[in-house]
Design a binder for these strands. Structure first.
Length: 592
RNA sequence: GCACCCGUAGCUCAGCUGGAUAGAGCGCUGCCCUCCGAAGGCAGAGGUCACGCGUUCGAAUCGCGUCGGGUGCACCA
């Protein structure tokens, strides 16, 4: 059967396509004098109606334009309906309610998404939205003083999935980790490591209050013994502190890198805070701000309400962040003349800007909420408002086991390590579950449920759909059908007529659009939810075959129909694989 | 006291940046296997979208205010 002309080559975002059609016809109405010229179409939307009975798609054009055009919504809708109905893609256009225009599309249009999925494979849904713009996603950035724990895991997964999403949406993405190796916490690390070094030399370690007690420093102590023998024993701090800072930071970063690797996260850049000191970088960033008149010597007003204990007015070097949306100006130098932590942070972001990024994203823990405005102010000031900085805060992870709060009784503390979780449930499950909540909502992670093979476990449910398709493909081959993607891409999809099949195709058609929304809003969790819904529709269709045997995918005596149905479900598997791929989860070929 | 986040079904949460009768999972009720994976599916009950104003053709969604919960709040990173 020859394909209608309008299917030959086109952008596969059906929603965008129909919107274009609507806009074109609005212009026709303008040239015909029905509508006045100069209307703003910005608010015209083409969306799937909430209730499928209303049609395949709906547009609000008439209602949005009624006021500026000084016309009744229904008059516009009626005129537009006549025009749209002339297009071969539109089976019917009906005006409803206050002026909604409900469109019924040629079903072939929906099923064309199947062909698209099969021909694009893993790239199904890939978008050019980002137009190759350089975007920097900074995430994890945990102090190099120990291994990653569950809280960090969420940020790591979120950042990596967001980066994958942006890559898929056509951005040029850099994954980056900022190593806080310049502050006092590294001194603490060095001193803690020194005690472990003493321990390795057979002495009793004195891990006083304020030092890091964790076991993970024992190997550092041993490595130090390896390198220095006993030459540092009883030496003053001035002799070894600088070396141990460097040495133990290095080892901690190796530890962190290996933790990230367990999760499947790989960074493109590790940026050292230390590299900002003594290199003129901080000075350069502040000079930039100073040239804009944003640096001054002054005294901050006391906090409103209760004064903190011991508050006193001090003259400091301040950044006029209030000019860029912050609540108060922020100190960049302490009263003793040293930098505050904020100064290197400014310099770091200045460096990102200098490296030519068009957009910046910081993924932080929710406890950094107070930091958002000042950092945005800094980036706004440094880039003259040209480079947007989005800061995504990840809320806490609450760990459970069988519905009960779970705490690990580590000798050193009660926190649970990333390594412990990933080794128990695997990276795929960990990643997916971490993305089943919006980043700014707290997340419950149940270790027992994560391992469960049932629909209570969303990871399993999605994986199961993928595996089931695979299983059907195998059966089809046994039945003598050809099911390679090329054969399937040429299937006669007009044989798909059942409402459930159409519904599944419509769900598939949402994918390109959903992906762009997720990328635009920096919300990878939308993908996880979509995949769950898609899997759900697939499971329902599969089940239809149990109730109505003629709805089974494989019909032994109807090869063409079987091929069409297999093409449809193979497209589902392609979408699932593509979506999981973005999230960094491996699609399962079979469940065990 | 100030700032940010949150408040949607008994519980845990979505809600496509303003659309029509607000959705899903769990839990509860009742159904569906002579097998393409029941590791599943179908149906039912269950909601003043915290509250009040406002913006407009139209608000869970946007603005302001109130209440409730979380987080962070001067030279610490």
């Amino acid at each position: 059967m020859p394909r209608p002309f309008y299917l030959e080559s086109r952008e596969m975002n059906l929603f965008a396509e129909i919107k274009t059609l609507v806009l074109e016809n609005l212009n026709v109405l303008v040239t015909e004098g029905v509508l006045p010229a100069g209307l703003n179409y910005a608010n015209v939307a083409v969306e799937p109606p909430r209730d499928a009975l209303h049609g395949d798609m709906a547009t609000n054009a008439a209602m949005v334009l009624a006021k500026p055009a000084k016309m009744k919504p229904r008059d516009i809708a009626d005129a537009l309906a006549v025009k749209l109905a002339e297009d071969p893609r539109i089976l019917s256009a009906d005006v409803a309610g206050p002026g909604f225009l409900n469109l019924r599309l040629d079903p072939v249009l929906w099923f064309d998404i199947v062909t698209d999925a099969l021909s694009k494979g893993a790239d199904f849904g890939r978008s050019n939205m980002g137009e190759g713009r350089k975007i920097n996603v900074e995430f994890v950035s945990v102090n190099p003083t120990g291994p990653l724990h569950v809280g960090h895991t969420r940020g790591a997964v979120f950042g990596d999935a967001l980066a994958g999403l942006l890559d898929f949406a056509g951005y040029n993405v850099t994954r980056e980790y900022y190593i806080n190796d310049g502050g006092a916490q590294v001194d603490v690390l060095a001193r803690s490591a020194y005690e472990r070094y003493r321990e390795a030399n057979g002495l009793e370690p004195e891990i006083v209050e304020g030092l890091y007690p964790g076991d993970y420093l024992i190997p550092v102590g041993e490595a130090l013994k390896e390198k220095y023998g006993d030459s540092l024993i009883d030496q003053p701090e001035s002799v070894w502190l600088e070396d141990l800072r460097e040495f133990s930071t290095e080892m901690m970063m190796d530890l962190i890198r290996s933790d990230l690797k367990l999760l499947g996260v790989t960074m493109d850049v590790f940026f050292s805070e230390k590299s900002l000191y003594g290199t003129g970088k901080i000075e350069a960033a502040l000079a930039n701000l100073d040239a804009k008149g944003l640096i001054y010597e002054g005294v901050l007003p006391p906090p409103k309400g209760k004064l903190p204990d011991g508050w006193e007015a001090r003259e400091q070097t301040l950044f006029k962040s209030t000019e860029h949306g912050d609540d108060v100006d922020r100190p960049i130098k302490k009263s003793d003349g040293g930098w505050t932590y904020f100064a290197p942070d400014i310099a770091y972001h200045y460096d990102k800007i200098e490296r030519g990024f068009d957009e910046l994203i910081d993924v932080l823990g929710a406890d950094h909420g107070g930091y958002v405005k000042r950092m945005k102010a800094a980036v706004s000031a440094l880039s003259d408002g040209k480079i947007p900085l989005d800061i995504k805060l990840c809320q806490l992870v609450r760990l459970y086991k069988n519905g009960k709060p779970f705490k690990m009784s580590k000798r050193a503390g009660t926190f649970v390590l990333l390594r412990d979780v990933v080794e128990q449930v695997g990276p795929d499950v960990t990643r997916f579950i971490m993305l089943t909540r919006k980043n700014d909502a707290p997340l419950d992670f149940d270790l027992a449920k994560a391992l469960e093979q049932s629909k209570d476990n969303p990871v399993f449910y999605v994986q199961y759909a993928h595996a089931r398709v695979n299983s059907v493909l195998k059966k089809a081959v046994e039945a003598g059908l050809k099911v390679d993607d090329e054969t399937l891409a040429n299937a006669d999809l007009t044989l798909l007529a059942h409402p459930a099949e159409l519904g599944l195709a419509q769900k598939l058609a949402e994918w390109p659009r959903l992906l762009e929304t997720a990328a635009k809003t920096h919300e990878p969790h939308r993908i996880a939810f979509y995949l769950y819904e898609l899997a759900s529709e697939f499971h329902a269709l599969q089940h239809l075959g149990k109730i109505e045997p003629e709805m089974r995918f494989i019909q032994p005596d109807k090869r063409a129909q079987s091929t069409a149905r297999i093409a449809l479900i193979r497209a589902v598997a392609v979408a699932i694989a593509a979506g999981l791929g973005i999230l960094g989860v491996t699609p399962a070929k079979e469940m065990r």
